[in-house]
Design a protein around this nucleic acid. Structure first.
Length: 867
RNA sequence: GAGGGAAUGCCGGAGUGGUCAAACGGGGCAGACUCAAAAUCUGUUAGCUUAUGCUUACGGGGGUUCGAAUCCUCCUUCCCUCACCA
């Protein structure tokens, strides 16, 4: 057989598709719209590898399937071109980021074109284009107008490697998201923020209505961190200080208060004689990274001040502590050592009193055994619960105690405040809590909150972990923040008609923010008063650019507006969005926020950016090793294309596993797909048409039906399996021209080039890629397993048994599924076999079944016992 | 500590109550064609058998059911995300 010249075929059809503009989406169409989007890439100098190609292919298969199914499909591509990596790479290469980027993008486009992806190239966009980022600036001004963009000095995450500030979302495990070896430091800087917290509740609550992966939704919920609790006012030095708690039921057990070491007003609490200690404490904290802070022991210093517990009027000490988060709640917590493990440890360490207020009522409150195990460890013993007894084995041999006894002992200890090893975190009844004594702790949460509200000492509140989005970056290659700082007028917005504020090309890279090195750019006049003023040199976080690009695709070249509302209304939201799960708490939250903001601005009429979200798995190198240059295992699409053909690779990767799973490239494994593709080509080489037989027709229609569902649900693997089965049958039986055409059509989304080539060979003069998806004719499908008369089957079975079995018997017992019992006619069988026949349902309690044969019965296959 | 996901034959990977010793692919083995094959095709790939088979098998224990890879429960292991959030 001749070698298949994949590369010629690929080029041929890519050229034809482009010339005919078949993938350019029209803004007006009779057809229903469908918007398929893959997360746009960050163009790196090293280009695309097969993993990226696979990611785009996942979307491409869907887009092609939708096109053939009569949708007006938009499938665009663009480049997330602004950002630090390009800047750093350019510096390293000794060129300007702008030039470096242009080159990278050109290379990406070339590679993507060679993959034959069904992109509408007329909608291409790049975020480093001032025509694009102008609208980033416009959104910033709108945020400013609505009070959602603001400036504040705060403790921020600083990556020394990036030399810039990071958003909370970009700090992962205390490290920079781009540098997994670099600890993030804390710096105090004046920064621009977007008030994403304004939308915290909607961002949280609306997740329930979304068709996104549960995992992603769970991650976002976790990140937004909604929790219901109570705000309680404590009086300190005649001023009101508020704490947030989810355990108002323990208010009578508060024995101290801890304020965050990073709290803005900390020093107001520190008395003169304690100032030295506190300063020293803060100094020690200042030099450590956030990660170390998280691992550190709970430390604190007494401030010298006392707070009044609003519940019982007790005077309790106020500490500054390293474990209290400054910008969650009020940055101050009430400590209940008896019922919170952290507070417990802190109290033990600093010898502060412990007051139990929730007491287990008995065994039923010991929800798990955790308390016990921890408790026992201290006396060198391990407890095991066996039946109703606790067995402990340790230094003094084995001892036994009943569980009830044990529970009672712990109960007494807690009641008498003589417990020493662990806080009681579980439920129980309230004790030492005045009028609330005896209440169940869960009930007490409400009752005490109600009481505090009535006394005007507290409020019911909802708190979020989500914090405002710090967007300032002290680097060059980002969207300039459209602000001018004037000595008299302060931070003044650049007027809308002066946008875009373009990035100056002429800057010097080195220490610090390169923008600071272009005085011509920095120095300007105040738009308000006309006096000399300075431009803001911070640029925006790269995630700003990607938060709304999917809207710009709908109207990518609009120079008057951010986009035409009608066009966005037609195309949006995205129907299926495909991208990595790593964006769950970054891009995918930010873009939800942007959509909500633009909606409230009246620009759009939907709430979420994408109806459906799909996370693709990663394509690793051979042996499951992550593809990387340093490991030398990078597989390039151009190599694959030359060796096996890109369609073969698409078929292979589709068939490996579900596209949401990580898969490994395998040069040997692809052989199976090479064989399959070759087989198809061989068939078409000397093609002979034949009338379809019944089995071919049946399988064809069955496959059309099934595969359609598979393409719709990213079950590409199942599609490849059934396509193989269908073609194997066609290969054996031969088929009509029509059947072969339909086979090519349903294979087309996975193998677009070769099916196009063979479609032409069949004598078609249209594109298979835009042809109408075949319809399954269900009447042609012959259902398998529709057996004949069950009685005949049974008779046959009995006869075969009789032939093989030795010995005499007179009676035949038949065991059958309950729902099949009406299908059996015992007299018919009896007449045929000439023996007595008795029929039982398998679940008949009174059946005669000495050998347990009833268990062996299956639907359509009764079991038989001879006696 | 909180949340999410997973465990299937030599490997990858389907399978969510019966027709499951478990699709499909890879690999292995045997055979056919061939001078020969990494090419193509056929068969086979838990063990014992050969009476509708039987036994052992879908991480482990227990349970529900006439019947469990599939449902419930507990446990073990692995992966991912967040993590001092009061």
């Amino acid at each position: 057989m001749e070698e298949i010249d994949f590369s010629t075929i690929e080029k041929k059809w890519q050229g034809k598709w482009e010339a005919a503009k078949i993938f350019e989406a029209s803004d007006q169409s009779e057809k229903p719209k469908y918007y398929v989007l893959e997360m746009f890439p960050y163009p790196s100098g090293s280009g695309l590898h097969m993993g990226h190609a696979w990611n785009y292919t996942i979307g491409d298969i869907l887009a092609r399937y939708k096109i053939m199914n009569g949708f007006n499909v938009m499938h665009p591509m663009g480049y997330d071109a602004l950002g630090l990596p390009a800047e750093n790479a350019a510096i390293k290469a000794g060129t300007h980021p702008e030039d470096y980027n242009k080159k990278s993008i050109q290379n990406y486009i070339k590679q993507q074109r060679e993959l034959g992806l069904s992109y509408d190239w007329s909608r291409i966009l790049s975020t480093d284009d001032p025509k694009y980022y102008r609208w980033d600036q416009w959104i910033f001004l709108k945020m400013l107008e609505k009070g959602l963009a603001y400036q504040k000095t705060s403790a921020v995450n600083w990556c020394p490697e990036c030399e810039t500030v990071l958003a909370n979302e970009q700090v992962q495990d205390g490290k920079c998201w781009r540098h997994e070896d670099t600890d993030v430091n804390i710096k105090h800087l004046k920064q621009w923020f977007f008030k994403i917290t304004e939308y915290a509740d909607e961002l949280y609550e609306n997740l329930d209505n979304m068709d996104w992966p549960d995992k992603t939704k769970a991650m976002q919920k976790n990140w937004i961190g909604k929790s219901h609790g109570t705000e309680i006012d404590f009086e300190i030095n005649n001023e009101t200080w508020t704490v947030f708690t989810t355990r108002p039921d323990t208010i009578f057990g508060v024995t101290f208060v801890v304020v965050s070491a990073q709290h803005k007003k900390l020093m107001e609490l520190v008395t003169e004689e304690r100032t030295k200690n506190i300063k020293e404490f803060l100094k020690n904290l200042g030099s450590i990274s956030e990660k170390e802070l998280a691992d550190m022991e709970k430390l604190g210093v007494f401030t010298g001040s006392y707070a009044i517990n609003p519940a019982n009027g007790e005077k309790i000490p106020v500490y500054a502590g390293n474990f209290v988060v400054a910008d969650y709640g009020s940055g101050m917590v009430m400590a209940v050592p008896a019922h919170d493990q952290r507070d417990f440890e802190f109290a033990k360490k600093y010898d502060i009193g412990i007051q139990a207020v929730v007491c287990p009522r008995g065994k039923e409150d010991f929800e798990n055994f955790e308390y016990d195990i921890d408790y026992s460890r201290k006396d060198g013993k391990e407890y095991v619960l066996q039946g109703n007894s606790l067995i402990s084995s340790g230094i003094n041999g084995e001892t036994t105690e009943t569980y009830d006894n044990y529970a009672e002992r712990i109960r007494k200890e807690i009641f008498n405040n003589t417990f020493h090893y662990r806080a009681w975190k579980s439920r129980g009844e309230l004790i030492h809590s005045k009028q609330f004594n005896g209440l169940d702790s869960k009930k007490a949460k409400e009752k005490i909150t109600e009481w505090l509200v009535k006394e005007d000492k507290g409020r019911k509140v909802i708190n979020f972990k989500l914090r405002d989005w710090g967007i300032s970056r002290q680097r060059y290659w980002g969207t300039p923040i459209p602000i001018i700082h004037c000595e008299d007028c302060g931070a003044v917005a650049v007027p809308e008609n002066e946008l875009p504020v373009k990035l100056p090309r002429d800057v010097t890279f080195g220490e610090g923010n390169p923008l600071e090195t272009n005085a011509d750019w920095i120095n300007t006049t105040c738009p308000k008063c006309g006096n000399p003023a300075r431009r803001e040199t911070d640029t925006m976080d790269t995630f700003v650019n990607s938060s709304w690009y999917f809207l710009r695709y709908c109207d990518p070249n609009n120079s008057e507006k951010i986009f035409d509302e009608e066009k966005v209304k037609y195309w949006s939201p995205v129907d299926t969005y495909i991208g990595g799960a790593e964006h769950a708490c970054m891009h995918l939250i930010y873009s939800r926020f942007y959509v909500k903001f633009l909606r409230d601005l009246g620009m759009i009429d939907f709430d979420e950016p994408a109806k459906k979200l799909f996370h693709q798995g990663m394509l690793n190198g051979e042996g499951g090793i992550k593809m990387s240059k340093s490991k030398g295992n990078v597989v390039l699409p151009e190599t694959v294309s030359g060796k096996f053909g890109i369609d073969t690779a698409r078929f292979f990767l589709s068939g490996l596993a579900s596209p949401d799973k990580n898969i490994d490239w395998d040069d040997k494994g692809i052989i199976g797909s090479v064989k399959f593709v070759s087989k198809i080509f061989r068939y078409f080489e000397n093609i002979k048409f034949a009338d379809d037989n019944e089995s071919v027709l049946s399988l064809l229609n069955q496959t059309i039906k099934n595969v359609s569902g598979y393409y719709d649900n990213f079950e590409y693997r199942k599609a490849t399996i059934e396509l193989r089965e269908l073609f194997d049958l066609i290969d054996k039986n031969k088929a009509s021209k029509e059947t072969l055409g339909k086979f090519l059509q349903i294979l087309n989304p996975i193998c677009p080039h070769i099916t196009e080539e063979l479609w032409e060979k069949l004598g078609n003069d249209n594109f298979i890629s835009t042809s109408d998806w075949p319809k399954a004719d269900e009447s042609k499908i012959v259902k398998k397993g529709q057996s004949g008369d069950l009685n005949d089957k049974v008779i046959e079975s009995i006869k075969s048994i009789i032939e093989k079995v030795e010995g005499d018997f007179s009676k035949i017992y038949i065991y059958i599924m309950p729902f099949e019992i009406s299908k059996i006619d015992s007299s018919k069988i009896s007449d045929e076999i000439k023996k007595t026949v008795e029929v039982f349902a398998v679940n008949d309690k009174d059946k005669h079944d000495p050998q347990g044969k009833a268990k062996k019965a299956k639907p359509g296959k009764p079991s038989i016992y001879l006696e």
